[in-house]
Design a protein around this nucleic acid. Structure first.
Length: 941
RNA sequence: GCCCGGGUGGCGGAAUUGGUAGACGCGCACGACUCAAAAUCGUGUUGAGAAAUCAGUGGAGGUUCGAUUCCUCUCCUGGGCACCA
């Protein structure tokens, strides 16, 4: 068979007959939305594309033949860096390059024999598409889900662009491998963190690979713990007020900001505004800072009852007696008294911990170099110079270097500043160290070296005390540090509790004392979408100085500005009617050294009118991260031509959420998380009626070169699918990819592996071309014969396997069926021949169609036919091979009717010659009988 | 370091509510066809052994009448995360 001619011939027929044009509803059929991750138009389809799209198309065709109205669209993720990189290399405009590639790849996708409905194609670089990308941006922006901030950003010195955290691999640019540096730039971010909990929770109901869900969970990184305020004290306080009785319950009152009064019979050299330390009457240690708000000289008699300070005396006489004893002189109504009023300064450092149960083992506190405390306590930190040097040094370090140093921890103590453990009332030293991350939690931690490995290493290095507060008999603590839960020791009232109980009770206590609160933290960061690049969708915002002033002065009508505009003063959204903000076809599209988007050099682009006040404005010149484009494309497929809305509501409801999504595991986190975020945001804004975009997800594995290495031009191990298609035909390539192994596993390319499938297809063809004509007239046999049996077993197996994405075993059962048909080639009837082709059709659409129409003379396309259903009547076996075991070892198999009794099986087993040969004169001690399977005689020899 | 996968013939891989290990394909060997080769078809193909049989699913133990499948430890390998308190 000349498969090239066959392929061309049927493609033309299919197009003419319109068999892949999808209707939004078909009476009596359920809709099924089957998607693949749309490709980036990089030039040519590579084998990985084939591996993604080929088997996914098999699945889609299978669903269609099993009675669904299947929608299987395709498009191109057409914006992005590679177009610019290619442009730099070849001097072609990114747009020219991209659309040329789309043309090539479209032809290749058609050749693959896919059932895409090309009328629904989307290309993210088309203005008709990115108009709605911009519209989507504005929805999120207006709802307050986008914000602009000067953020530390990853900057690639080679690509001259900011990279998302996710695009930095091991501190290097994921595209060019250049070392990434940090820069501070104003950028737009989406508040994906607002959705952290829902993104986590809703994973539950998804039919996704467990591994992918786990990766998303880890990425979101939820930790439940508590933030605790550690009051700060300094040695710089000018004087002390030491009459306070310190106990934990009083601390909270003091720190909650109530005014307190202290009486002195002798004056202190303190004046209003001075910062004093509050000292524990017993230990004489500072426990908080206070500012003096009043100093007054009076007599004891003038003190009113209400003013009788913080200490509760039974009566005035008792007070006088107490003071008399304390000062060693008589106290009467006329005794002079200096009255100091003060208020506690709420200076404290908040730490986040998931292990509040270990707090009695806290021996110091660490803040990140970025922590605001360092600046605000500049005056009080005695060794500020050394601290500042350390901060500068560690800020220069990239996060990667911080990690590489790993166990070698560095830090500097903040001399003159201490923190009070609210549970013990003891003060502990405060350090700055870059092993604490500024961007997570509160940027400060309570260090418990006895129960945290990192703190342990740091404590060892700095010779800090290590105090055990948890014991667990099962755990070996000889290494020094016990990180597991256990029982609390040396923890006052909490001693003896188990960790979990202690966490609950300690958190409750903190909340009651207003010293802390339960808190959930996520590792997930907001999504940085600004790109200082040309080839992307412009961000549809205009900066208007006039509106900024109006917002600042409150000079605007209610409802004139949206939430997003008010929270980003001066930035106004482009009106919907004015969308899209067209990407101008500039000649200078290359990135520039200044790091600004190339669009910033186009004056005509930047000039804009403010949509609110009509005044002069300046356009945002950054473009959007391409992940924005791909976060909603599945919503556009159902209605890609719609100029009035991103998609018709009815069409959306007809197809979404997608029933099946197939693509690479490399998108487990980013693309899939962003798409989920978009869907949820749009759901909240009532633009879509569902909360999750993809009900089911499957990944294809990665195909490696024949050498087991990742394919790359430099290694010369690239397998070119075009070459294979030229030699073996598209059907064979699709089918071999299905056959080579478990779909999600991938693996090294086996040169020569293709020939097995090629032979199989040749045998199919020759069977039909030599037999069909005689066989069609044969009437289907109703008798159960071996051929029928295999046929129906195969139908069952193939149907189940494709549904489970077990394409390899489905094909192997088709091979068994073909072998059986070969064996019974004299007895083939029209039904058998037709059924086999139907089973084959999803895998080999061209050959199946050719034989179906040409050899069997069918008029309509096989791809419109229904998949055969198996008849249990034909699959039932009435005999089986009884396995005879002696002491668990197989000794014989005997063909027996199903339903044989244990007694009969035993008789047969005992008469087996093979059994006798092994165990003559045996004594049967026990018989294990598994009905319709085996009999095992436990014997003594 | 932590969290997930995966280790089965010469190769890709089948088979697990515990019940005949190696389906299917590649490769290889032999045979048929051919002057010959290719293609095709047929037969065989886990290892050792002439055979009976024995061994055998990364390794070591364990549970069981019976373990690729369950448990414990361990090695290798692929992927993810990586000072997230």
């Amino acid at each position: 068979m000349q498969f090239k001619n066959v392929e061309k011939k049927w493609r033309a027929v299919w197009e003419k007959e319109g068999i892949y044009t999808v209707k939004d509803s078909v009476p009596g059929k359920k809709n099924f939305y089957s998607m693949v991750m749309f490709p980036y138009p990089s030039g040519n389809l590579h084998i990985g594309h084939w591996y993604n799209f080929g088997p996914a198309d098999v699945f889609a065709r299978f669903k269609r033949m099993t009675g669904f109205n299947v929608f299987s669209p395709i498009g191109f993720d057409a914006f992005g860096l590679p177009a610019e990189n290619a442009a730099i290399k070849n001097g072609i405009h990114p747009k020219t390059w991209t659309y040329k590639n789309i043309k090539t790849m479209t032809a290749q996708l058609e050749q693959m024999g896919t059932m895409y409905d090309w009328e629904r194609r989307v290309v993210t670089a088309d203005p008709e598409y990115y108009k709605w990308t911009q519209w989507m941006f504005l929805q999120l922006f207006h709802a307050g889900l986008a914000y602009r901030t000067k953020a530390k950003a990853n900057w690639c010195p080679k690509d001259h662009t900011v990279l998302a955290n996710e695009q930095v691999i091991d501190g290097k640019c994921d595209r060019c491998g250049t070392e990434v540096v940090q820069r501070n730039i104003d950028q737009w971010l989406f508040k994906i963190t607002d959705y952290a909990e829902r993104l986590l929770q809703d994973l539950e109901g998804l039919d996704w690979p467990e591994k992918t869900k786990t990766m998303q969970r880890n990425w979101i990184g939820k930790s439940e713990g508590v933030t605790i305020n550690f009051p700060l004290v300094t040695s710089e306080a000018v004087a002390v007020v030491d009459t306070m009785k310190f106990n934990p319950s009083l601390v909270s009152l003091v720190l909650s900001g109530e005014k307190y009064i202290s009486y002195r019979l002798e004056p202190k050299h303190i004046k209003v505004g001075d910062v004093c330390g509050l000292v524990h009457a017993g230990t004489k240690k500072q426990f908080a800072l206070a500012r003096i708000t009043g100093v007054e000289k009076r007599t004891m008699g003038e003190l009113s009852e209400q003013e009788v300070g913080h200490e509760k005396f039974a009566n005035r006489k008792a007070m006088y007696t107490t003071y008399a004893k304390y000062y060693g002189k008589p106290v009467t109504n006329t005794t002079d008294v200096w009255v100091y009023t003060f208020e506690c300064m709420p200076e404290s450092v908040a730490v986040f911990t998931t292990r509040v149960d270990t707090i009695y083992g806290c021996t110091y506190v660490v803040v990140a170099p970025e922590h605001a405390l360092i600046e605000s306590f500049k005056q009080q930190i005695e060794n500020y110079k050394a601290v500042a040097t350390y901060v500068t040094k560690s800020r220069k370090k990239l996060e990667r270097e911080r990690i590489i140093e790993e166990k070698e921890k560095t830090g500097v103590r903040l001399q003159g500043v201490s923190a009070i453990n609210p549970f013990t009332g003891e003060s502990v030293p405060v350090f700055v160290a870059d092993y604490v991350l500024g961007g997570y939690g509160t940027g400060a931690v309570m260090a418990v070296p006895a129960h945290d490995e990192r703190d342990f290493i740091f404590a060892k290095q700095f010779s800090l005390p290590i105090k055990t507060s948890i014991v667990n008999a099962k755990k070996d603590v000889s290494a020094g540090c016990m990180m597991d839960d256990g029982t609390l020791v040396d923890s006052e009232a909490f001693t003896g509790m188990d960790s979990a109980t202690a966490r609950t009770q300690m958190t409750a206590w903190l909340e009651q004392q207003k010293m802390g609160a339960g808190k959930v933290n996520y590792k997930l960061r907001d999504w940085l979408i600004s790109r200082q690049r040309y080839w992307g969708s412009p961000i549809p915002l205009v900066f208007c100085e006039h509106c900024k002033q109006r917002i600042a002065s409150g000079d605007y009508k209610k409802g004139e500005f949206t939430q997003g505009e008010l929270s980003n003063p001066g930035w106004v959204g482009v009106a919907s009617e004015a969308l899209p903000v067209l990407l101008p076809l500039v000649k200078e599209y290359l990135p520039t050294e200044d790091g600004k988007s190339p669009l910033a050099h186009s004056k005509s682009f930047m000039r804009a009118t403010c949509s609110k006040c009509g005044g002069k404005g300046m356009r945002e010149t950054d473009t959007m991260d391409t992940f924005v484009c791909s976060s909603w494309y599945y919503l556009r497929y159902p209605d890609p031509q719609n100029a009035k809305q991103f998609a018709d509501k009815k069409k959306l409801a007809a197809w979404l959420p997608a029933d099946m999504y197939v693509g690479g595991a490399e998108h487990s986190v980013l693309h899939l998380l962003y798409a989920r975020f978009f869907t949820k945001a749009l759901y909240d804004l009532k633009h879509v009626p569902f909360k999750e975009p993809f009900a089911a997800l499957r990944h294809q594995g990665m195909i490696l070169g024949p050498d087991g290495q990742k394919m790359s031009k430099s290694k010369g191990n690239v397998i070119d699918p075009d070459e294979l298609v030229g030699t073996f035909g598209a059907d064979a390539v699709r089918m071999y990819l299905c056959f080579m192994g478990p779909y999600d596993q991938g693996g090294a390319w086996q040169p020569g592996g293709m020939v097995g499938i090629a032979r199989f297809l040749q045998r199919v063809e020759s069977l039909y071309t030599t037999n069909a004509k005689d066989s069609v007239c044969k009437k289907p046999s109703t008798a159960v014969n071996p051929l029928k049996k295999v046929m129906h077993q195969t139908i069952k197996k193939v149907t189940e396997d494709i549904a489970d994405f077990h394409f390899n075993t489905a094909i192997s059962s088709l091979m068994i069926l073909l072998n059986t048909m070969d064996e019974y080639r004299e007895h083939l009837d029209g039904e058998v021949l037709e059924q086999f082709l139907l089973l084959l059709a999803p895998f080999a659409p061209y050959i199946a169609e050719e034989l179906y129409r040409e050899a069997l003379g069918q008029k309509k396309s096989i791809h419109l036919a229904l998949y055969p259903k198996y008849n249990p009547h034909f699959t039932v076996e009435n005999e089986f091979d009884l396995v005879v075991q002696i002491n668990g070892k197989v000794r014989d198999t005997i063909r027996v009717p199903k339903g044989i009794t244990q007694e009969r099986a035993r008789e047969l087993a005992l008469t087996s010659k093979k059994v006798f040969a092994v165990a003559p004169g045996m004594q049967v001690r026990k018989v294990i009988f598994v009905p319709d399977r085996l009999i095992n005689l436990v014997v003594e020899l």
